[in-house]
Amino acid sequence: MSGAIKGNILTSAGWVRGEIAFSDRIGAIHGASTDPATNGDDYVIPGFIDLHVHGGAGKDVMEGGDAVHAIAAIHAKHGTTSLLATTMTAPPEDIDLALKAIGEACANRRPGCARVLGAHLEGPYINSGKLGAQPNFARAAKLADVQRLATFAPLKLITVAPEIAGHLQLVRELADAGMRVQIGHTLGSYEDGVAALEHGAAGFTHLFNAMSGLHHREPGMVGAALAHAQYAELIPDLLHVHPGAIKVALRAIPHLYCVTDSTAATGMPDGEYMLGRHTVQKCMGGVRLPDGTLAGSTLTMDQALRNLVGLGLDLADASARVSTYAADYLGLQERGRLAPGAWADMVVLDRDLNLKAVYIEGELL
């Protein structure tokens, strides 16, 4: 399997007007530096990387079985070439079931599906006072428990509320073991956030959502992120976070990257869907619990990119925030960039930023 694409190609050195040759990996990029505004060619940019995916196509990660493959397929149609399947706070047997299915999907990518890189363990090590849309099965973490879960699937991200007794030490132990820990679903203070970063936490889960907010005398967890974070994820569906707050985060956090936090309702009509053990309602472009609490989203990464450009980011900057920074955060040097030797994960966009083609490890969807 080999091929070539022509257009305005976004490389790490900037835009090149020319051709990219590839098989499962990129072989070479030929062309000259360009300003895409001077021509009418398509854009060729790195495939999107989504580190927070609960569902899609009517399926939820917590179902286990083949659900992860169906989820990876619907997101691939929207340009996501790799993702982390994300768990919910749930009883231990539910999490075991989900992680076993995630592990199988990691080992066996099916045609037409995004590459499942591993799991984002969003629950259960969170604060029961800041559940957001999570069911109330929160519990304190123990290293042995995390190590057992890691036998089922690669745990690429683990969300932790650092103010829970014992969690700061656990953050250090997990970081020392090479696991990426981020702060989320937390009532912790600014000081708790700073302490967690000092103990090895690397980022923040859906910045602004399900964490203590910023006040000028009590900066909260949001304040810790804005003052100190290099990386944080954010949901740019324009429902979870006001555009003004997104702009604040863009100025404050150098490698702010975007996630969908998508649910089973993604790609589906309005109606009821499952989110872990919760029933949620999709209507008016959002997903909510019966009490009105936002419960994930129906966002796709191609729309996330368009939303960022709509907020004033240039395409290269927006592309980094839906791809490159997430890859860098996980230490993946062969994804999230168009360069010789990297995986041929690419999307082709027309001049209105609509998807024209998606390539995953060289496979044209």
Rank of each mutant, 00 (worst) to 15 (best):
K59W: 06
V61R: 01
D66Q: 13
D66F: 12
I71D: 02
I74G: 07
H75P: 11
H75M: 07
H75G: 03
A76W: 08
K77Q: 13
K77M: 01
G79M: 10
T81E: 02
S82P: 09
P91C: 10
P92G: 10
P92E: 12
D94K: 11
D96H: 12
L99T: 12
A101Q: 06
G103N: 05
E104L: 04
N108S: 12
P111Y: 11
C113S: 11
A114L: 06
R115I: 10
R115C: 13
R115E: 14
G118D: 09
A119T: 12
H120R: 10
L121E: 01
L121V: 15
G123W: 01
P124G: 11
Y125C: 00
I126M: 04
G129M: 03
L131I: 09
L131M: 12
L131K: 15
A133K: 10
N136H: 05
F137R: 03
F137M: 00
A138C: 11
K142H: 08
A144M: 09
D145R: 06
D145M: 12
R148W: 04
L149T: 08
T151L: 13
A153K: 02
I158S: 00
T159W: 08
V160M: 05
I164R: 11
Q169C: 04
Q169T: 15
L170F: 02
R172T: 15
E173W: 03
L174Y: 04
